[in-house]
Nucleic acid binder design. Structure first.
Lengths: 225, 225
DNA sequence: TAGATTGTTAATCGATTAACAATC
DNA sequence: TAGATTGTTAATCGATTAACAATC
């Protein structure tokens, strides 16, 4: 029932995925420009920092209802604010970490470095009973039985999986069963999920493995040339 | 001169980026199937684990010269081997880490978790002279002056940036200047790079920030429905 | 005004999907 | 053989780019 409503609203979100994925990149670039005290930028300048034509950037922005100053460009501050609001970055979202062993700890540590205002890890759990009570960063690892209650009381919307690959599916199912439909997955297992759930797999290995293809190519071409 | 050759060979690598990015995902799924002792799979089965139609998968594979058993499917072991070889995962690539403070440490720790056979971090540097000599994991942080020599002697092909945002560009330029054209960037700054360089920006923030859009959408739709 | 840049359309490009004969 | 799945083509879909009049 609740899922039906959500599914519907998800499908109705009208920004194409490719556009959506570019927006945080625009924001990064705008922040950089701000640090350089640049007040007005242009689609052309923005395009220097990413592999996208200026016309694409203009198109993205107009499609979102964001307009520049005709003949001038875009006000950096205004554009940044618009994008932040659109992406929901003016709010802060609570997240829960599942997995208190080394992967969990390093993932936590790594995310902490980024000091994002957008999300906060406010609770930690581990399916392994032996981990309960141990501390990870400043959080006490809780019994997974209390997951549902904690999600409610702490208004948690994002689940972070940092468990061994062999229980990733179980953990994902648990999160989804507890109405967490936004999942960040640090494990190397890609869980099967219903289509109203959004999972981001953050596995550096995935990136590096497509890199090595190019490495190999270049070596071959050097040898043969 | 050397750059010209490389540039050329990069452009001539004929696998489309979208296809290339799917290959490591196929490999993950194949490993999972192997763990379940499944010997023969099909494009249909593989498509269950990722948002791609079976015809796409067949097309990807034939385009790479990989053939299945007509009427039967694909031999899991054979397919895995073929993809690994194609991606250059039968080799091991040496990487250097730049940045020995907390971000560097947690990135290192995080990557260690993954125990990839594909790459190995064999040296660490920091532009900050005060960091020199400190240990990170089992590596001693070296003076960046020795970067060039170490790259040569240790046959390093991959550079990992884990420095504060404000020096990312400097570090990227340094790496490129030392003929490292494969860069993994853990900072939140997107450096400007020549087009023959491949940079993978691994910033969980990027992923999460496009997630919050959907979070916001659903909240709004719940309120209005 | 002259120069620069937006907003927008049309053309191009490439990726995905559906369908089915060929094959095991 | 019957059933299932590949390999491949054609159709569809969507994203990117180029071009330019309108605007500051």
């Amino acid at each position: 029932m609740a899922k039906d409503i959500i599914k519907q609203s998800y499908l109705s979100s009208d920004i194409p995925r490719v556009v959506l994925d570019r927006l945080p990149i625009y924001l990064r670039i705008l922040s950089q420009l701000q640090q350089e005290e640049i007040k007005i930028t242009s689609s052309k300048e923005l395009s220097l920092y990413m592999p996208v034509e200026s016309s694409q950037i203009r198109k993205d922005l107009t499609s979102l209802g964001i307009n520049g100053i005709n003949g001038k460009g875009y006000n950096v501050k205004v554009l940044k604010k618009s994008l932040q609001k659109l992406l929901g970055l003016d709010a802060s979202w609570n997240a829960v970490l599942i997995g208190g062993s080394t992967l969990g700890r390093s993932a936590m540590e790594f995310m902490r470095q980024k000091r994002s205002q957008t999300y906060r890890i406010v609770a930690a759990f581990d399916p392994n009973l032996r981990m309960i009570g141990k501390k990870i960063s400043n959080l006490k690892i809780q019994d997974i039985k209390d997951l549902q209650r904690t999600i409610k009381t702490r208004n948690i919307k994002i689940g972070i999986i940092a468990t061994p690959n062999n229980i990733t599916q179980f953990v994902a199912d648990t999160l989804i069963g507890n109405d967490l439909f936004y999942i960040i997955n640090f494990s190397s297992f890609t869980p099967k999920i219903p289509d109203y759930v959004i999972v981001k797999n953050l596995d550096p290995g995935l990136e590096i493995e497509s890199m090595t293809y190019h490495l190999r190519q270049r070596r071959l071409s050097k040898v043969t040339s």
